[in-house]
Amino acid sequence: MTVAIYLDRLRPAGASLRAMALLLLLLAAFFISARGFSSILLLDNIRQAAPLGVVVAGQALVLMMGRLDLSVGATASMANIVLCSIFNSDMANLVPAVTATLAAGALVGLANGIMSTKLRIPAFLATLASSLIIAGLVVFFTNGSPRGAVPPAFRVITEGWLFGVAPYSALIWLVLLVALLLLVHFTMLGRKMILSGANVVAARHSGIPSDGLIILSFVLCSVLASIGGILLSAITGMASIGVGNNFTLDSIAAAVIGGALFAGGVFLPLGAMAGALILFFVQSLLYVLALPPAAKFIVQGLIIILALALANLKQERSQ
């Protein structure tokens, strides 16, 4: 493969550039309202947006396969409960706590993938059902009163900064995005995933194991949702039922803003990152402007409409 092909794959897509432009406009409005630019404030917001950003990356991966995962919020919440209960404020439990949390997420993704492929249940219904099951199991095992917390030393992954310059959580988010970028756009496995997402029937006729790739995307999505739950747990410091529930709709909205298509066949890590930051800075801007929480949903809806309208306009012009 030539260098030119590699460089072409690294070139940002138009949807990603539009999302970045929208993000820059939002940042300008945010800092004007905050009466001055502050790099520390910018990085601190990125640090707090990292949990959502990781979940959005997983959602974008499933959308690339032409599917939708409505269980990411419940999975992130489950990760919080599992992590905190096993940790129990003791850093000595680091390995079993993190391992069990990621394994639980992987099992959720495996179940979602099997229901979507082998049982032929529409993905949004299968993942909706799994989210309800997860929520019920969490309440059952905790009796509605979750216990446990992450030790203070573990919270460095979201509270700490590398050399005082970059938040660790932002770096974790960046590493995961780069890993997904390399997987999807620079490996044969990733190319097969894109082809399966664009046209699953044609991919099957070409001998591509599409069902296995769809299952893989769900597993990766749920593992990323668990990582998002881990980061969120490091921010909150304690177990809380439903702490990640907002991630479900927010991840879909952010992925769509970033250029993801419900029809599949597209994976834009830069756009996914921009979409997550757009949603987070919308909340920050509304807070600075002292607007009611209900305004968040209105603004999010308008941003999604704008992103889809621009995407459709671009598509019509290219035809």
Rank of each mutant, 00 (worst) to 15 (best):
D211M: 03
D211L: 02
I214M: 08
L216T: 08
L220V: 15
S222R: 04
V223K: 10
V223M: 12
I227P: 00
L232P: 01
S233T: 13
S233I: 05
I235E: 06
I235A: 04
I235N: 01
I235S: 02
I235V: 08
T236M: 02
G237Y: 06
S240W: 07
S240K: 14
G242E: 10
G242P: 00
N246Y: 15
F247I: 10
T248E: 11
D250C: 01
S251P: 07
S251W: 14
A253Q: 09
A254M: 13
A254Y: 13
G258P: 00
G259M: 10
L261A: 15
A263W: 09
V266W: 01
F267D: 06
F267R: 10
L270Y: 13
L270A: 15
A272C: 08
L277I: 10
F280Q: 09
F281N: 05
Q283H: 07
L286E: 01
V288R: 12
A290M: 05
K296E: 10
K296R: 15
F297I: 13
V299C: 03
V299H: 05
G301Q: 01
I303Y: 05
I303S: 04
I305L: 09
L308N: 01
L308S: 01
A309R: 06
K314L: 14
Q315D: 11
Q315M: 06
E316N: 12
E316G: 02
Q319N: 03
Q319W: 13
